[in-house]
Amino acid sequence: MKYNWNWHIFFEPSPNGTGNYLDMLLSGLVLTIETALLAWIIALVIGTIVGVMRTLPSKTASAIGFCYVEFFRNIPLLVQLFLWFFVLPELLPRSAGLWLKQMPNAPFWTASIGVGLFMSVRVAEQLRAGIGSLPRGQKMAATALGLTTTQAYRYVLLPIAFRVILPPLTSEFLSTIKNTSVAITIGLIELTGQARAMQEFSFQVFEAFTAATVLYLLINLVVVIGMRLLERQVAIPGYISGK
């Protein structure tokens, strides 16, 4: 294979006229981070609600949670994004569909919400397992003290359960970041999108994707370190991972 390596390519002006190729990749990185953060917030909020629903004594709440989880975890992420981006606007009333299609940054919002919903079921399942792992007596003790179900979750069950599931949640956060790359298929020019654009403009495919690889590794490393610090911060002396 004959290939002209050119590591200086990053500092050559990019054809979009706003700087060099490195700037292009970095703008993609910023978009990746923004999409991932919004998706993660959605995943945490909805995941917490659904995860709690699945542990409630109410059969209805638990059934709704079950349907939600099975719907979102059994359809591939790519198909889900296509559903939200291409199919949903056609199913809605004409005016609403048009509004969706013409929305500025539609790929960004669709990707954030789509990835967020996809990841929310994983958060929900982790949380359900976390709450399930607590001794039954904890809920009883909270209840016996007169706390309502909401208070028992808010002050007792969730603070402990989230500590228990912090390590697997780190993995879910990393998955969220990586899954945003699928958004390239609905036109979001995030890091993967910019790397591909760079490859198409410059023909330096190896340099472009090496840079993307390094940048993905770096943000994920930051997340891993951040979550470790958080784990240490909230560790309970003498309990579970506490030292």
């Binding site: 001794p135 007596g137 003790a141 209840t143 007169g146 007792v156 309970i236």
Partner: peptide
């Protein structure tokens, strides 16, 4: 019930203190 339970103290076999 929460109001009523608050007026009766209960102690469990496994203590059930809140670990956090």
């Amino acid at each position: 019930l929460p109001k009523l339970r608050a007026r009766v103290g209960m102690v469990f076999q496994h203590f059930e203190l809140f670990p956090h």
